[in-house]
Write a protein that binds this DNA or RNA. Structure first.
Lengths: 194, 194
DNA sequence: CTTGGGTTTGAATGGGTGTTCAGTTAAATC
DNA sequence: GATTTAACTGAACACCCATTCAAACCCAAG
């Protein structure tokens, strides 16, 4: 067990993931080479393979980590009324995604670069997240609070709308994150209300 | 001027564009090689260069054609009341995009693979399309029909929501295109109404 | 039936790809 | 101070990349 304090492995590992996240988001998985990632970390390409088995695994790991983090953070309190649950979801989605634009970008854009098995895994996680919102809408519709003929469609519509925020919102811009959350919550609320 | 009837150039040209559109949408611009495109057309890679100057131009052309077609097809009748204009826009957007899933995918996903000048050109076209919706919302808000604190945000929210349809809608599925248009129109209408 | 030219081939150019691995470096332990 | 070993280098491997171009092909026109 030599070399624990001075070891770099606990530094280089995360740095590789950070660099890959940024580069994949900026240029796309296929357009980024292992040499570029290594360059950002300040290491030769060969060294990356002490930390990851291959390029594809690096992508899957980034996407899985993002989705798992998302699922763990999403607020679900089934004792709250549906409207309150929906508001919590909307504000959470915007806030969470805004804090991780690169991960969001990758999770939505690089699905087609996943090998079939990996694709299925990530899609399953995404499905679980969508199910959270769908359940809220279904409960609210059942209680007569919401008017959504097809909760599945409404779920996809709302998530698409909310996720779009990451493509244009910048904290330095005209509006604060709170402003954006307020206005989106207003639109979502009205769009599903009975 | 020999060889007009037996010429292939009026066949091969479009076939290259078709193949590139499908392949770029499926695998991404960076992941598709000129050899793959040529293979789909049934020709050697070198032959592509009789029709396009380079790979990047092929991408730009596909994106520009899509955006120009979109801008020419979008219904704008300023004599209609804002609500009717909005409904026409919503139904048009869903219908038009549904008919060209590959072009939509490329136009939204491959922006980062454009060189700066080309990027600016495509963004300008996209801006013009967004301006159509923004104007409708602004007019309606001015007339007191709509309640949208920030028409710019509402524009982006609505477009993101509508464009999301292409990622999941399949004509063979549970719902018809008309069903989807109806429900989306219902949600959009409610979300912006005063 | 030859000619001219639009069209395509097939090879070559120079460079980049992901991945492997023997060898070197340097820090922690004994 | 010697030994161990995690961490990394640098070169090599086999292959793919976009693009160019002289040569071959093929067919309408004359």
């Amino acid at each position: 067990m030599a070399r624990t304090t001075g070891s770099h492995s606990d530094i280089t590992g995360p740095r590789i993931r950070d660099a890959a996240l940024r580069l994949f988001a900026r240029h796309g998985y296929a357009a980024v080479s292992m040499r570029q990632i290594a360059g950002e970390v300040g290491v030769q390409a060969g060294a990356l393979y002490n930390y990851i088995p291959d390029k594809q695994s690096l992508l899957v790991e980034l996407m899985r980590d993002h989705m798992v983090e998302l699922l763990e953070a999403v607020p679900v309190d089934r004792s709250d009324p549906p409207l309150a649950q929906l508001e919590a979801f909307v504000r959470f989605h915007i806030g969470f995604h805004h804090a991780r634009p690169d991960a969001v970008f990758i999770a939505y854009m690089e699905l087609r670069n996943l090998e079939p098995g990996n694709f299925a895994e990530i899609e399953e996680l995404r499905g679980r997240y969508e199910a959270v919102l769908e359940r809220i809408l279904r409960d609210g519709a059942g209680a007569g609070v919401f008017d959504v003929p097809d909760p599945k469609i409404a779920t996809l519509a709302v998530i698409a709308m909310l996720t779009g925020v990451t493509t244009w919102f910048r904290a330095e811009g005209r509006l604060s994150l709170g402003d954006v959350q307020d206005q989106y919550w207003d639109m979502v609320r009205k769009s599903v209300m009975a």
